[in-house]
Computed example of a mutant assay.
Amino acid sequence: MEIEPIIHVQGLEKSYGELDVLRGVDFDVARGSIFALLGSNGAGKTTVVRILATLLKADAGTAGVNGFDVATEPAKVRESFSLTGQFAAVDEILTGRENLVLVARLRHLDDPGALADDLLDRFGLTEAAARKVSTYSGGMRRRLDIAMSLIGDPPVIFLDEPTTGLDPEGRLEVWQTVEQLAGRGTTVLLTTQYLDEAERLADRIAILHQGRIIANGTLDELKKLLPPAKAEYVEKQPTLEEIFLAIIGTNHEEQA
């Protein structure tokens, strides 16, 4: 018996005047998976997310989240997801814990303090809980932003270019957070323009180009679309990211 996808998109179209942004987009996302929508700037990634989040109406096609249609059941759709945009939506005047407690109270949840403490622990922010967010690094702000999105336990989270503007260390922190989300059963729809990000995180990758999905599959399936590589011996060199993180780790140990 085939399991119904938690996100279903079929024939999605959207235009702004004479500019066709989406020209028949189709994809499904399996429950509990990480799905990466990969594309360059202007490919239409954010437009897809905004339609799924009921913030924008499609010109044609259908889309559903958690079994609910975005056009006819928008209230049910909104109860099923949380959205984290390209820039962290946190209050810098408040502490990390106060941000979480505020959101929990706005959603009328029981024991907001306990919810906040649990999320701070999950996202490695307990030691910074009493500090104002204005003192947080970019990676810490993004982790707090994602933690705020999870208040209420939505089954789906949309992450729209979550590592934009972060340094290598901050990007790694966010990647680890996303992997933990999926490990707990949350479905993640991730939009990104970074190839390494999609390669590291995604169970499936859809490539959006000029308003259409031109490839969709696992990393192994996408690799098979290219001709076989000629086998040659090449000494592996460390990447700049590996060098950077190794040096940072060494310095941290010396200062400890």
Rank of each mutant, 00 (worst) to 15 (best):
M1W: 03
E2C: 07
I3K: 15
E4F: 03
P5Y: 05
E13V: 11
E13G: 00
S15M: 04
G17A: 15
V21M: 05
L22C: 04
G24N: 07
D26F: 07
V29D: 00
F35H: 07
F35E: 01
F35L: 01
S40D: 13
G42T: 09
G44F: 00
G44C: 00
K45C: 00
V49K: 06
R50A: 08
I51W: 04
I51H: 06
T54K: 03
A58W: 04
A60K: 15
T62Y: 09
G64E: 13
T72G: 03
T72H: 07
A75I: 14
G85T: 13
F87S: 07
A88R: 13
A89T: 12
D91G: 02
D91Y: 00
E92M: 05
I93Q: 12
L94C: 11
R97F: 13
V103N: 06
A104W: 12
L109E: 03
L109T: 01
D110G: 14
G113P: 07
A116K: 00
D121L: 06
G124C: 05
G124E: 09
L125C: 13
T126W: 04
E127G: 00
A128N: 06
K132N: 14
V133Q: 13
V133F: 13
V133L: 14
Y136P: 03
G138D: 11
R142V: 07
L144E: 08
G152M: 06
D153P: 02
I157P: 02
F158T: 00
D160C: 01
D167E: 09
V178P: 01
R184H: 06
T187E: 10
T187W: 12
L190H: 03
T192P: 07
T192S: 10
L195P: 06
E197I: 02
A198K: 04
E199K: 08
R200G: 01
A202D: 02
A206R: 02
L208E: 02
H209N: 15
R212T: 03
I213S: 02
L219E: 05
K224L: 10
A229V: 09
A231I: 10
A231M: 08
A231S: 11
A231C: 01
E232C: 03
E235W: 09
K236T: 08
Q237E: 15
T239V: 04
E242H: 05
A246P: 01
G249N: 14
H252K: 15
E254S: 11
